[in-house]
C-alpha cells in the first residue's frame, strides 16, 4: 500500500540525516489551503492521511526555499491548453505570474505553523501582518527579478554557492531568461506524462491550469501541484480571461 511506500521513503531520508525530514501531505480534493499538513513526524502524517476522505498525496517538503525578506513564497503561473485539432494539444503560458509570500519569517522548523509554511492566500489572510509587507502578500514578476538579484548578491557576499572557484558567476537569474523557460519545460513534461489520457479531445476543448512552484535557495524550480480551477489575482484576471477567450473561443469562430 502507498502508506508503506511513504514510510520507506521517510526512513531513507531519516538515515541520510541531511535535513529535518519534513513532508507535506494533502487531500487531492483540498482547496484554499484546507486539508494540508506539514510535519517531520511520520506517525503524525500517517494519522493525518488516515483521517482524509478520498485520495491523498504526500511529497517531500522543500526545506530550503528561496526567501524574500526572510519569508517563504511560491510561484503561481497560468497555462492554457487548447485542442482545436482534437489530436493535438497547444500549450500556452501567461507571461505574468505572481509570487505568494507568507506573512511570517521562515524557519526550517515549527512545521505546524501554517503562517510560516503554507503560502495559500486563504491561510495567510488570517495573519495580523497580512498585506503589511506587500499588497495581498503578492509580488509580481518585475519585482521577482529584484528578489532574484538580491538573492544573488547575498549568495555572492556570503561566499557560499558562488564563492566556490569551480562555479562561474553568471550573474543573477531572471524571470524571463531562466525561470519561465524552466517552468515551460516542466509544464510540457507534465502534460506529456498524461497525454494518453488527454488525447483525443473533443474538438474545441480548452482548459486553464494553475501551476504552483517553489524555487530553492540554489535556484532549482520544484513543481508543487497543478490546479484545475485556479484562482487568479484581481489585477490579472481581466486581461487573462480576455486573452484566453481570444485564443480558445474566438479562434473557433472566425469572422465571416
Amino acid at each position: 500500500d502507498e502508506r508503506q511506500g511513504f514510510a520507506s521513503a521517510y526512513d531513507e531520508y531519516q538515515k541520510e540525516g541531511k535535513c529535518s525530514n519534513a513532508w507535506i501531505a494533502k487531500s487531492t480534493l483540498g482547496f484554499k489551503g484546507k486539508d494540508i499538513k506539514v510535519s517531520d513526524s511520520a506517525t503524525k502524517l500517517l494519522a493525518f492521511i488516515d483521517s482524509l476522505k478520498g485520495r491523498w498525496v504526500v511529497q517531500k517538503y522543500i526545506e530550503n526555499p528561496m526567501l524574500v525578506d526572510g519569508r517563504k513564497f511560491d510561484i503561481r503561473t497560468w497555462h492554457l491548453v487548447t485542442a482545436h485539432d482534437p489530436q493535438a494539444l497547444q500549450v500556452y503560458t501567461f507571461d505574468e505570474g505572481v509570487l505568494r509570500v507568507s506573512s511570517k519569517p521562515y524557519k526550517n522548523s515549527d512545521f505546524d505553523d501554517d503562517f510560516m509554511h503554507i503560502t495559500n492566500n486563504a491561510i495567510q489572510q488570517d495573519h495580523p501582518d497580512y498585506g503589511k509587507n506587500e499588497q495581498d502578500n503578492l509580488i509580481d514578476f518585475a519585482q521577482f527579478d529584484h528578489v532574484l538579484k538580491l538573492h544573488h548578491q547575498r549568495k555572492k557576499g556570503k561566499g557560499g554557492e558562488l564563492g566556490k572557484e569551480d562555479e562561474k558567476d553568471n550573474g543573477p537569474m531572471t524571470v524571463r531568461g531562466n525561470v519561465l523557460p524552466r517552468i515551460n519545460e516542466i509544464v510540457m513534461e507534465t502534460l506529456r506524462c498524461i497525454k494518453d489520457f488527454l488525447l483525443p479531445q473533443p474538438c474545441g476543448a480548452y482548459q486553464m491550469l494553475g501551476y504552483d512552484f517553489v524555487i530553492t535557495d540554489k535556484g532549482d524550480l520544484q513543481l508543487l501541484e497543478v490546479n484545475l480551477t485556479p484562482g487568479t489575482s484581481t489585477t490579472l484576471v481581466g486581461k487573462m480571461v480576455a486573452d484566453m477567450n481570444e485564443i480558445a473561443v474566438d479562434a473557433a469562430f472566425p469572422d465571416p
Binding site: 497555462h79 492554457l80 489530436q87 493535438a88 494539444l89 497547444q90 500549450v91 500556452y92 503560458t93 501567461f94 507571461d95 505574468e96 515551460n184 509544464v187 510540457m188 502534460l191 506529456r192 497525454k195 488527454l198 488525447l199 486581461k239 487573462m240 486573452d243 484566453m244 481570444e246 485564443i247
Partner: peptide, 13 residues
Amino acid sequence: SLNNGFKHVGKIE
C-alpha cells in the same frame, strides 16, 4: 494578437 499574454510554448500530439 501580439498583445496576447498567453504565449505559445509547445504542442503535444
